[in-house]
Structure formats: C-alpha cells, structure tokens
Design a protein around this nucleic acid. Sequence first.
DNA 1: GAGGTTTTATCCTTCAAGTCGATAACCTAT
DNA 2: ATAGGTTATCGACTTGAAGGATAAAACCTC
Lengths: 239, 239
Amino acid sequence: MVYDPQAKTDRPAHAVLAVVFQVRDGALQVLLWERALDPFNGAWSLPGGALSAGDTLEASIRRHLAAKVDVRELTHLEQLETLSDLDRNPDVWELATAYLGLIPSDVDPALPHDTRWHPVDKLPTLAFDHAAIVLAARDRLRGKLSYTNIGFAFAPETFTISELRMLYRAALGHEVSSTNLQRVLLRRHLLVPTGTRRESGRAGGRPAALYSFRLRRLEITDQFAVLRPPDRRAEQQQS
Amino acid sequence: MVYDPQAKTDRPAHAVLAVVFQVRDGALQVLLWERALDPFNGAWSLPGGALSAGDTLEASIRRHLAAKVDVRELTHLEQLETLSDLDRNPDVWELATAYLGLIPSDVDPALPHDTRWHPVDKLPTLAFDHAAIVLAARDRLRGKLSYTNIGFAFAPETFTISELRMLYRAALGHEVSSTNLQRVLLRRHLLVPTGTRRESGRAGGRPAALYSFRLRRLEITDQFAVLRPPDRRAEQQQS
DNA sequence: GAGGTTTTATCCTTCAAGTCGATAACCTAT
DNA sequence: ATAGGTTATCGACTTGAAGGATAAAACCTC
C-alpha cells in the first residue's frame, strides 16, 4: 500500500451490528438484511452500519435499527462483543461492536422489503463473521434465560404459562415443562398473576390464568449460586 | 469547534485497557499505572493505550501490557466491554475496549516504578471511567468463579485446598468453606489430585494433598443449570 | 505418647429442580 | 344435563447439588 498521509488507516472504521431475536412461529428467528453494497453484495447480513460522530455505540445501533424495525418494540438491548479480526472485512480495517436485541412475540413490525426474519436453526450463508455472532448471541440469550428474568423481553405484557413455555422452548432449543417453568419463575418472584384469565375462544379446556413479569428490565436472579453461604442467598430476595 | 476537513473526528480514537487481577496478600488486587500524560496527569489509571494499525484488540492489549508486566504470566485474558460515552475522555472522542486479565498468585512480576498493585477494596481515585470498569471486571470474575473453572487462572500449577480457599475468599469477598469448595470442584471434575503432598515445613498438622486444575483454559461447568431436563445435564460431562 | 494443629472423610440437613399423577375448569356433543 | 374431551393447575414424590458439623487422620513439638 502506498503511503498516503491523508489515509485514515491509523484509525479503524467502526461499525455497529445487532442480532435482533424474536420468537415467531414457535422458532427463534433473527432479523437479517440483504446487502445492497459491496463487499458481500446480495448476501444476508446483520442490520447495522457505521458509527458516526456524536453517537454512542448504543445510540448508533438504535439509529441504524430504526431504519429496519420500529425500535420502540425493542424491549432489551445489550452489548455483546467487539470484533477486531484484521481480515473480517476484506476491504477495510473495521471493528464492529455487536448488540443483542429482543422483540416480544406479540408484535409484528413492518419490515422493508430487503429485510426478513430467518430461523436461527436454518441460517443462510451470512456475510462477514455474522454467522458466528448470531450463534454467540443465541448462547448468551440461553444463558441469561437461566439466571436472569430476560424472558420479559420476548414475552407479551401478559401471557399464560403455556404460552411462556413455548417461548422458552423456542429460545432454549429443548423441551420445557410447564409445571417446572411456573414453579421456578414463581419462586424467584419473576412472575406475578394478573388475576385475570384468558377468555377461552378455544375448543375447550380450563381457562388459563394470565401472568406478567414483575419487572420489565433485566435483573439477575441466580448469580453466585455456588460457594455462597446461605445467609447471603437470602439477601438477593431484596429489590 | 472550528470545522477542519483534515480533522479525523469522523472516526473515534480507540483505546484498549486491561483490568489485571492478582490475589496478593490475601486480597484481590489490580494493576494500576500512574499517568504521565494529560488528561488526568498523575492520576492512577488502568494500563493500556491506543489501538494501532495491524493489531487486533487482543494483540494490542497484550502489546501494551508487555510494557508493564511479563505477559507470559497472563493465564487468562477476555474481553469485557467497549465503552463509548461521548464525554468519557474530556479531550477527544475515544472508544475504549476493556479486557480482564488474570495472573496466578505464585508469581511476582517485576513492575516499572510507575506501576503498582492496588487492593480492589481500597481503590484510589481513578482516571476516566476506570473505577467503574474495575468493579465491572470484579463482578464478572465473581460470576465466572461460580459457573466456570476460571479459578485455574489465579491459582498456581499445584496447590492445597486451603490455599485455593484463600484465593476464592479473596476473589469472592466472603468466607468460603474448604469442605464445600473441595466437594463442589471435585464433583464438577475441575480438580485432579496430583498424588503428592505438600512437604510440611510448618509447625505441624496433617500434610495437605496437592491438587491442580484438570484443564487450564476456560470451560463452562454450570451453564443452563435451570429448566434443562436431567438427561441433558449429563451431556455436559463431555469434553 | 500427650497435646496441638491442620487436613480430610463421613454423616446429616436443606432446598432448588424435575417428574408424575390427580384434580379443576372449561368446552362440545349427545 | 351430562358424559367425554381438553387444557390448566396443584400437590406429592424423587433426585441431586450444596452447605454444615463432627469425627477421624496425619503430621508436628515437647
């Protein structure tokens, strides 16, 4: 490469990306965008774009996502990791900070024609290192389902235990027992019954009680479960 | 600010930082450096520096750390988060990616005169947002002590259960029972007895058996503990 | 060998989590 | 209305990880 004092190669470009998940049709799906730019023109990739002056990373990813979905539907957004492999973008030196976003299952945001939901289990070939990012995001989500209340972020305001069970099954990738799910989430005080029941428009069966998450922002419910004396455990009942 | 087409304000500067922990004198301590540059000249801050062309983030932090400690002693290094608050550096627009590094308790690397260990419980005033980063790193470490084998990274090659207990106590910040620690780590197959005993140069007492970690790289041992049917749990015995 | 010290094994309790079956509460069809 | 189907919920039971307490083991010094 010829030396060029104007070239900005002493500073990398910085992109932001989001892995936006929603449970749709009983499967965990991710929002993908069909690129209209080189490199990887025409390939599926994660939504995002360049970090621009005056934005924090989170503000930037929200701004870029706003072009794809109604960001007011985003119930959770957290930073994953920053990728810096030198050859992750074949054209330029570019870092990328990835975010995990969640959308509740009861909304169906309008999408531009170049943007679609794809089941995480059947991903197409993705541009850049995006396939690995999606899988890392899925693992992060699965972990947090076990020790936080993150379920609130992909569940509707109110729901029955059966509905919640399907959401957990889709996200975790294995069967989940209604009985156990209810007991675990109730014992941790993550769920509160609304007192109402689902009006049964179905073909029979006992009407299900409706629940909602006690708190609709992230809280840790099981951290330091191990090697902690029991009196300390009681403390986390607070808040 | 006057508009300057040569200014590179369309791309942020990018720094790398490391929170390097070691258990010293029974306390969790962090490696700090006394700044010799503005801003925050003279204040204590995390070691690190600018990301330079040709380096990944991890290569960059290793390079910067090499000026402070013998990086061969670093038994663990993982990315924490990337900070992007617009006013985190009062002078320039700068992102920073923080890393968590660990050093075993049985080495005492030579340090430059501007670099010192500080107990995490008694931090001096730190430059930038570094105090928050240190606390976030400590929390990450504490969490991983519960569900991974990360203890290998601050323990010597071989050790007695009592020695390991002191390390865990310092890192976790609360009492840890030897009996329980041994039982938990053995059940999870994280520890293997070496078969040898510590030659007793002490004032008496039964000689302690020496153990070492079965694996000296990070492995998850308790992920998805909840809502997972027991037959699935058996699978994670693999690897 | 008595007494002190530290380590380690054993027994016990507690409790989160998971399974299974019984009961409850609706529906529809006869 | 009532029998039978369907879904939801509750309660009893089992399992297993985790923590506490005590006793035994294995060294030391005097």
